[in-house]
Design a protein around this nucleic acid. Sequence first.
DNA 1: AGAGGTCGCGCC
DNA 2: AGGGCGCGACCTCT
Length: 581
Amino acid sequence: MSWIVVEARPDGGASLHELADDADVPGMPILPLEVVSRVEVPEADLPAELAAREASHPRWVLDDTAARYPALLAAGVGLERCHDLRLCHAILRMSAACAGSVLATSPPGPWDAPPDHDAWHEPDEVAAIPTLFDAVDEAGDGVGVSPVGGPAGVDEPPDLLAELALQLDAVAGSAGPGGLRLLLAAESTGALIAAEIAHDGLPWDVAEHDRVLTALLGPRPAPGRRPAVLEELATRVRTTLDAPDLNPDSQPHLLQALRRAGLDVASTSRYEISAQRHPVVEPLLAYKKLARLLSANGWTWLDTWVHDGRYRPDYVVGGVVTGRWASRGSGALQLPAQVRSAVRADPGWALVVADAAQLEPRVLAAMSGDGAMAAAARGADLYQGLVDAGAVATRKEAKIGMLGAIYGGTTGVSGAVMPRLSAAFPRAIGLVESAARAGERGEVVSTWLGRSSPPPGERWWAARAAGTGEGADPADAADARRRARDWGRFTRNFVVQGTAAEWALCWLAALRRRLRDLPGRPHLVYFLHDEVVVHSPVEVAPVVADAVRAAAGEAGRLLFGDGPVEFPLDVSVVDSYDKAG
DNA sequence: AGAGGTCGCGCC
DNA sequence: AGGGCGCGACCTCT
């Protein structure tokens, strides 16, 4: 076996050597060739901005970035670019653009198996993440370097270069090779970024978080006890409902007590309760709000997820069917506004917080080529632009109408505004309507770069068969229609949400590259669908803010060329996250 | 005791 | 009367 040796350079890059199998190089991380290879990827059809770099920079081919890269980072090695075979395989298997390829038509193989997280970590080891030296020591029997898809030593290790060849073939023969290449590059860079964010961590002020909790809930109680403020609210709820033994955390009992007290509710949801006029509403809603804070982001969360002043989100790149990232364990994508003041830059550092304004409607305008909507999106406020264009009367109508168009809203204000939007912006609305109709027929839809939606499952087709035709039971027919509409809402949203996710990935990747050129090592510390946070030395922060904007422009050009749609950002330089925006 | 389902709600 | 998620609490079933 030959080995690739990755050697950290002082400038933060890495160099590599190929070694004989008995080589022993103390202090250097070593990976077997089957796990990581340096490969030059053909650059045909890449946008010019990428192609120039593609020619001169190596792209590391990894079987699974999430499994390999943390150890590299721990050893002080950063990779500039990679091709993640696992993530790219998943995209290409599903993509309608290469449905006829060998890759897509082969029976399921090891690259289709879900990643085995247990194989990455040795729970009994002191270090949660195995070091590369562990991998080398145990490589002889496969432990620690087990490939994706099967127990070590049982299956043949997947052949990385063979898989790469299949993937490149699938792309080259596809209907949209340029888009897919960009998508695969962006997805893979996302995998690098997710690991880098986990490595660096989001700076977190535990004392400030504790202050917030104490101010809202009272001092931290003994384990198993309610904080004083919550207990007080619970008592008020019990008294008001005349239910002395009520546990307000129990939905069935709470619903029972509410109905007995005369409230007209069918559930205990905040929405229903807030519509009632009753003295219990105020303390109960306050209770629910604070109980949520305590259970989701209270002291237990703090103890579990924040260490040494850093919160380390565990992102799952490609974890959502649309291409959005998911997260694992700590609710990284649901940090409530209440605790954002605890996200605090280190002394001498700042947070550069940026979010893309009305990203999804802008993406829809760009991908549909709707000139009228693009013109309305010229300013910083797209919704006001729709009003100024005369399409709708108020900004509120514009917002609800656009969200309805993207999410599939048909009732209320949303449904009422749709005909006017459709008349004013026929291509944009036509695109989402067409995606909805395709989904209702059970067809696959695709994003701008070529990520495809999953087809409906067996139950969907069975329900459709049962509900279609002359003699169908009316109940079956109604069920089939409902399922069709539901799936149409999913595919309608898929094309927009998925393309927005692609824009965001390109934005992240472009930003990361720009940050590498700046002094002081400003680095990404958080990502949330259409928002990024960069931790930066204070004196570099203004340049970082420029880089974030420039990266947004680059993302727009990468996806849509020099089209008319702009992607403005709201950028803030702050010392804590709550001050952004 | 533990697994799995439902609800409710946080984020976009 | 919307799309996508993850998580904790409770509850039920095994």
